Amino acid sequence: MQISHKSFRNIGLIGRPDKYSVVETLCLIHDHLITLGLNPVFDQETAKLVPYSHGQTVSRNLLGEVVDLMIVVGGDGSLLHAARALVRYSTP
């Protein structure tokens, strides 16, 4: 199966909840996804960090049901937490 950016419509965004240093990066990614016509989806914890009051928010455990691709901003721990939540969905 060949994967292209057209295969992804809903893009999940997760950031380390206790690190406000990820906010700027998350906002840049969010805004860029919007300009590409894609739908960014924050997990509930990450949504508390960013200054967006609109947009789609889903619990981390349900992200795999909604998103086609996940972007994680943080360190190894953030990546591992996201992987645990998404492993049953095979979300890239």
Score class of each variant (00 low, 15 high):
residue 1 M to D: 06
residue 1 M to E: 07
residue 2 Q to H: 12
residue 6 K to H: 14
residue 6 K to A: 13
residue 6 K to C: 10
residue 7 S to K: 03
residue 7 S to C: 11
residue 8 F to H: 08
residue 11 I to C: 00
residue 12 G to K: 01
residue 14 I to E: 00
residue 14 I to Q: 04
residue 17 P to T: 15
residue 17 P to M: 08
residue 18 D to E: 14
residue 19 K to P: 07
residue 20 Y to E: 14
residue 25 T to I: 08
residue 26 L to E: 00
residue 26 L to W: 06
residue 28 L to V: 09
residue 29 I to V: 15
residue 29 I to N: 02
residue 30 H to E: 07
residue 30 H to C: 12
residue 34 I to W: 05
residue 36 L to F: 02
residue 37 G to Q: 09
residue 38 L to C: 01
residue 39 N to W: 04
residue 39 N to I: 02
residue 41 V to A: 06
residue 43 D to W: 02
residue 44 Q to R: 13
residue 44 Q to K: 06
residue 45 E to G: 10
residue 47 A to N: 02
residue 48 K to L: 13
residue 49 L to G: 09
residue 51 P to G: 12
residue 51 P to T: 08
residue 52 Y to E: 00
residue 53 S to M: 07
residue 53 S to W: 12
residue 57 T to L: 01
residue 58 V to I: 15
residue 60 R to D: 11
residue 60 R to A: 15
residue 60 R to I: 05
residue 61 N to T: 08
residue 61 N to K: 14
residue 62 L to P: 01
residue 62 L to W: 07
residue 73 V to G: 11
residue 73 V to F: 02
residue 74 G to Y: 13
residue 75 G to W: 04
residue 76 D to Y: 10
residue 76 D to M: 12
residue 78 S to D: 08
residue 79 L to G: 09
residue 80 L to R: 11
residue 81 H to G: 01
residue 82 A to M: 05
residue 83 A to V: 08
residue 84 R to Q: 13
residue 85 A to W: 02
residue 86 L to K: 04
residue 87 V to P: 00
residue 87 V to Y: 11
residue 87 V to L: 11
residue 89 Y to M: 01
residue 89 Y to Q: 03
residue 90 S to C: 10
residue 90 S to Q: 15
residue 92 P to M: 14
